[in-house]
Design a protein around this nucleic acid. Structure first.
Lengths: 339, 339
DNA sequence: TTGTAAGCGTTATCAC
DNA sequence: GTGATAACGCTTACAA
């Protein structure tokens, strides 16, 4: 493996000068720099990160920690898209992205703590926390206390931690406004009512338009054990919705999964989608393209969220004095056929 | 951060002895060892990986390089599942998993790819190559020439490189046998005919049962620009299939995407799935749960493939003399309603 | 503008 | 059994 010494020998300069030339620091004459760069290219020089880290007391590794609920499917696609966005932002920088999964029980356990220790043992330059959980916040504080730059990608829009959040409320607000613009007047919201962000967006739009709030709790949704049962929940929710609000002509669903079930359920009940009832999904998962009809849905800007989180993290790594920053990435509606 | 020196000072031993005691190598008296271990625990000692790497000329990083076609959606879910399998296998080892993406253009040459790989990769302990491409093989040879342990997760079952492949042929073979067992006698295969593995499995089962080969080329499938058009291709393929083989009572599709389109297309043509025609998908993507009816499909054992690849890679890293090993991970049928 | 020398934390080699 | 000592490749004072 080529090292600085090889280049020094080749160019007849000292190791030191070579180092400066390659990093563009300090005084190096143009001719020396040119020779060094040329030699480095020819010899296929790649800096030894271990040596650099050792000398500089500094790591070039960014750890992404993905919290995974034991009930879940392993790892959410949407989170992986965020990771890809992060990786993309890191391209052409000196940083590596290392991927970690932490399986959590409901609360912070000794088990969780151990997993975290293993992850930060090699002292990453920074950490991105991914996945829904109050746990994220505990870990965030823990890491910050250790002086590790850290960014959370969060469900909620919080101002007290470094975080990037997806503008869920604004997304649903937009979608409902769109439905209103299409002439719908009896717009339901279907989903879990424990999670407020989406509902707040819905209520805001409904209120502004002077319409009636029609919220349908999707029973059993929170305690699902797999996606297939979720689909059935959508089916039942369709029935419930039409019983509570027979006049419904549109529905904003909590998720694409629910929306898919909702479409099927409504069709079984002889309602046409979107002619009789418009259905709007949430997340823009792959399946949104394959439902009947394909779903109009509020899309998560995963890629952008990942990029934004990484940009913020690098800022914090390179300038530790940056204050707490909270960003919100707006959602966008993807129009297909269901609304 | 505690280092060996701190422990040496604390125990009154030399750094060297401390190092040996902690690694369990060489001669160290029991009492010395006990004192060292105790002190290490108290001080919360964690080895400095950068120093160790530097000294031992050895990295603790495993790079996963995912080749991505620019037409694709960014990163295939199935590949990410493999990555998760790999990460899982790495838990509780000293290795990190670092993630890389290489987007290749149409006229991307092996040369370009090599340059990119060289740039993104500062000496990992090993490399896993992921994603469809002849490029993978060129890169594989390049890395092996550099003495870098390397494993490919491949579409084809090859014997000349270290690789883990998914038993596609066997998967389709099983599925067609299942269809035959269900009393189907006019079983089609629909998909691209340029890709032979699946077709070989199909033909094998058909031949063994003395049935007629009925292969339907899915026109336009190869040159799709997005998933939505794929859905339409399935639709058209249904039409074509019924024209060519009106007696068809089952079809093995090239992919779940195609199968989804096929189901919709067949239903438009007044055929019931599975009563009139059974449809079997391939891949077991998330969408297979949301089609109408939910797809019976040949499932990729992604997690296992990832684990197997990582197990093989670690073997190669830790014992460079291991010969070329090719593994095949069998596929399994997931039964839903479409067949 | 360039070179010299020290040191980051660890492990390997050797002498005691 | 144990302890000096010398690397590993790089960066940073500081000297020239």
């Amino acid at each position: 493996m080529t090292n600085l010494k090889d280049i020094a020998v080749r160019t007849g300069l000292s190791i030191n000068t070579v180092s400066r030339a390659l990093r563009g620091r300090g005084y190096v004459s143009q001719s020396a720099r040119d020779r060094v760069v040329e030699a480095a290219r020819e010899l296929g020089y790649r800096p030894n990160r271990a040596a650099r880290s050792l000398r500089c007391h500094r790591s070039y590794e960014i750890a992404v920690i993905n919290f995974i609920a034991p009930t879940g499917s392993g790892c959410d696609t949407l989170n992986m898209e965020k990771v890809i966005g992060m990786r993309h932002f890191l391209a052409r920088t000196d940083y590596e992205l290392s991927l970690h999964f932490v399986y959590y029980e409901k609360h912070f356990t000794a088990q969780t703590a151990l997993q975290i220790v293993d992850i930060i043992e090699p002292r990453p330059a920074g950490v991105v926390l991914l996945g829904d959980s109050d746990l994220s916040l505990d870990i965030y504080r823990h890491l910050v206390r250790q002086n590790l730059p850290c960014v959370v990608i969060s469900h909620m829009e919080r101002k007290d931690v470094d975080c990037v959040s997806i503008g869920r409320q604004g997304g649903v607000y937009q979608a409902v406004r769109y439905l209103i613009g299409q002439g719908r007047r009896n717009i339901c919201y279907a989903g879990t009512t424990t999670c407020r962000t989406r509902i707040d967006g819905y209520c805001q739009a409904i209120k502004e338009a002077g319409l009636r709030e029609m919220i349908v709790e999707a029973d059993g949704y929170r305690h699902f054990t797999g996606l297939e049962s979720l689909f059935e929940v959508g089916d039942q929710t369709a029935r419930k919705m039409l019983t509570l609000f027979p006049e419904a002509d549109a529905v904003q669903a909590y998720s694409d999964y629910l929306a898919a079930g909702l479409c099927a359920g409504l069709q079984k009940l002889e309602r046409r989608v979107p002619e009789d009832i418009a259905v709007v999904g949430f997340d823009n998962r792959e399946l949104a393209m394959f439902t009947n009809p394909p779903l109009t849905t509020v899309a998560q800007p995963n890629w952008q969220a990942g990029e934004a989180a990484m940009r913020l993290l690098l800022q914090k790594i390179e300038n530790k004095n940056v204050g707490v920053t909270a960003l919100t990435v707006p959602m966008e509606i993807v129009f297909r056929s269901s609304a």
